[in-house]
């Protein structure tokens, strides 16, 4: 199978990593009240499954029970997309304003920083062949997290501040779990072992080296945070593989996959109170 894979040349990296537990949050009435006050949402508290939802005429607040993450959305009552482009602030100013807002709302996090600005765009086709109506309706400032200089991947590690009409903030989410750093470090597998795990995964067993190729452009070490609705007992150390697969039929299919980077067997991890479930990492 070695002919199938094109791997970057890499020096070995650290063999230990800091151990961050993510204790389950205590979502009691005080926790809920703290955020209803911050976002000024005053309504009946509902608990549809894995979220607590408080909604009034002005907005909706969601608190994720498994992680303590929060998501506030201003209610607009819109029954269709906006057709008017908003003149947004520069991306630099939008990020600076988002920083101030997070500070004011007691949501700022020193381990996060803005990594991108994205937009919601709408295009309306009134009639085939006619000029379309195009509108940029929202601007999103996206934050990523890092710990000890290592990135934290996964949707459970992001903050997003959204601006709408008149550059008003209309949505704010913080997906993050509080972490507790342990004194003990976790032992890592080598990059060579991670590459072997990647190559031997059933993803690739049906690919022929005569007709297919797997190009890995980058291998990075970091942590993985599950989505806010999922239970996770620690930030999972992983190797990230970024690249693309080409076959006779499908060219250049991008992937970013993660290989568990821990040397300890699953039994030991469970004994340490940090079980690895099937969904804890992909591949």
């Amino acid at each position: 199978m070695t002919g199938l894979f094109n791997m970057p040349k890499l020096a070995d990296v650290q063999r230990e990593i800091n151990f961050y537990r993510t204790p389950l949050p205590n979502i009691d009435s005080n926790y809920i009240e703290r955020f209803t006050k911050i976002f000024q949402v005053d309504g009946k508290v509902r608990e549809p499954g894995s979220r607590i939802v408080v909604k009034d005429r002005s907005g909706e607040l969601e608190i994720f029970v498994a992680s303590g993450s929060v998501w506030w959305t201003k209610r607009t009552g819109r029954r269709s997309e906006s057709r008017r482009s908003v003149k947004f602030n520069s991306e630099k100013r939008a990020a600076a304003n988002a920083d101030s807002y997070l500070e004011e709302m007691e949501l700022s996090e020193k381990r996060s920083k803005p990594i991108s600005v994205t937009y919601t765009e709408t295009v309306i086709e009134r009639k085939k062949g006619e000029k379309t109506i195009e509108a940029v309706t929202h601007q999103h400032v996206n934050y990523g997290f890092s710990l000890d200089g290592l990135p934290v991947w996964g949707s459970g590690a992001k903050i997003q501040i959204t601006y709408g009409e008149n550059n008003q903030i209309v949505e704010a989410l913080k997906f993050w779990r509080e972490t507790k750093k342990e004194r003990k470090k976790l032992e890592l597998i080598s990059i060579a072992s991670a590459i072997e795990l990647f190559k031997n995964h059933e993803y690739f067993t049906d690919l022929s080296e005569q007709t297919a190729s797997v190009h890995v452009n980058e291998i990075n070490l970091g942590y993985y945070a599950l989505p806010p609705r999922e239970t996770q007992f620690f930030l999972t150390p992983v190797f990230q593989f970024i690249g693309y697969v080409s076959t006779e039929n499908y060219e250049n299919y991008d992937f970013d996959n993660y290989v568990l980077a821990l040397a300890a067997p699953a039994d030991d991890l469970k004994k340490m109170g940090v079980p690895i479930t099937e969904d804890s990492y992909v591949i």
């Binding site: 997309e81 991108s116 994205t118 937009y119 919601t120 765009e121 709408t122 295009v123 309306i124 086709e125 009134r126 009639k127 929202h138 999103h140 996206n142 949707s155 997003q160």
Partner: peptide, 11 residues
Amino acid sequence: NSWRVWTRGGC
């Protein structure tokens, strides 16, 4: 289907 709307936004 006399007219159509496409929208995309950042996750």
